[in-house]
């Protein structure tokens, strides 16, 4: 049982490492946010689950469960708020970008007013 928990924890930590690597390698802030949010959410979920499996005799399952639920609910919200703020203060997308519908719509509205 403990070995199985250890394997799950190891997979989770590999996803955490991939998230940090994505933060370093991606070219602009929106792509960094994508890599960071997704990889760290699943990585933390697997990491905590593995530790809960390994420590099954202590009564800490409930707290780890509430921690996992909390992270799943709040991580996308903070990422969304940051992306919105970054687009609002005008941080540009990378040169490889194809389209930017939000900037198009905003400039249209300002032109109409």
């Amino acid at each position: 049982m403990a070995v199985f928990g250890g394997i799950v924890t190891l997979i989770g930590s590999v996803f955490l490492l991939l998230g940090a690597l994505g933060i370093v390698r991606m070219p602009d802030v929106y792509n960094r946010m994508q890599a960071g949010t997704k990889a760290t959410t699943l990585g933390t979920l697997l990491f905590l689950t593995g530790i809960a499996i390994g420590q099954i005799e202590c009564m800490c399952i409930f707290r780890i469960l509430i921690l996992i639920l909390f992270i799943i609910f709040t991580n996308p919200i903070s990422s969304h708020a940051l992306a919105r703020a970054a687009h609002h203060i005008g941080i540009p997308l990378t040169d490889k970008s194809v389209t930017d519908a939000l900037a198009d719509d905003e400039s249209e509205k300002e032109g109409a007013v």
Binding site: V3, G6, L17, V24, G54
Partner: peptide, 20 residues
């Protein structure tokens, strides 16, 4: 065996924190 796995994953998480 299980201790080795847990310690390895802690080291990998530490590398991730340094990269971030």
């Amino acid at each position: 065996m299980a201790d080795i796995l847990y310690n390895t994953s802690a080291v990998i998480a530490l590398i991730a924190i340094v990269l971030a």
